[in-house]
Amino acid sequence: MVSFRSRWLPSLVWIVGLLLLWQASSWVLLHVVEASMAQSKIPYIHELIRTFITYGGTLFTEGSATFSNAALGFLLGAILGAVLAVLMSLSKWMEQLTFPYAVASQMIPILGLAPIVYGIMRDEQIARVLIAGYITFFPVALNMLRGLRSVDLSAVELMYSYAAKPWMVYWKLRLPASLPGLFSGLKIAAPLAVTGAILVELMGAQNGIGVIMLRNLYYGPSHNYMFWSTVIVGALLGLLSYLIISLIERMVAPWQPEFRPSGGDK
């Protein structure tokens, strides 16, 4: 209970405070400033909740269409990224060949490729999966490679003293040691994969949360609550992807330093 009060109470107070501030700004904008399209700019929260209840079904189906495509691409990208990382750690040749491109890909605005991929594919499903996968691929590969290399020398020597075969060294030492790196890559990539999927939808797909987001935006002020709901769903999908990965990390690699209880906050 103590930990709840010191850990989560401040966050809760912040969230409630921000929501109240939002609600107040909405009222001020609507009645005091009398701005044009006031409700489009800062909508009432209770109206949003009402919309959520009324159109929950639609939001859910469209949201899950986006999310499942993003997840599929994410999964593919993550697997390929992890495989590349292992290959890079195994072969100097492979590393020299791909490492510069992996690093460069981190410096360029990858999401810019979304329209192009859509232009090539013209199939929204494949385009969404491809973009999500592509975005996931390099962060996962780079971070996992760092993890594979983070093994300290004595640990390798220990394996050597056991006369361990190469696959044993990987199975018992390098792969478990690379999990923190893998997960930090996955956590970077997960929200990006959702972003990529929504982006493809905005380019002109048939279904997905991005599609109804755009549609309701074009319908104008009369649909602004629905528009805001889709924005919130998009944000929630991003958060959800992050939380799911964090949860899996807690289960798969609970031994990491950051999960250890600290000596308490000062």
């Binding site: 300290d152 004595s154 640990a155 020597e157 220990l158 003293s161 056991y162 006369a163 030492l173 478990p176 040691a177 999990l179 690699a253 031994w255 990491q256």
Partner: peptide, 15 residues
């Protein structure tokens, strides 16, 4: 496996 070895640091696997 005729010998066992102990290093300067414990070299225990965190996981």
């Amino acid at each position: 496996q005729k010998y066992g070895i102990v290093f300067q640091s414990p070299v225990l696997y965190d996981w």
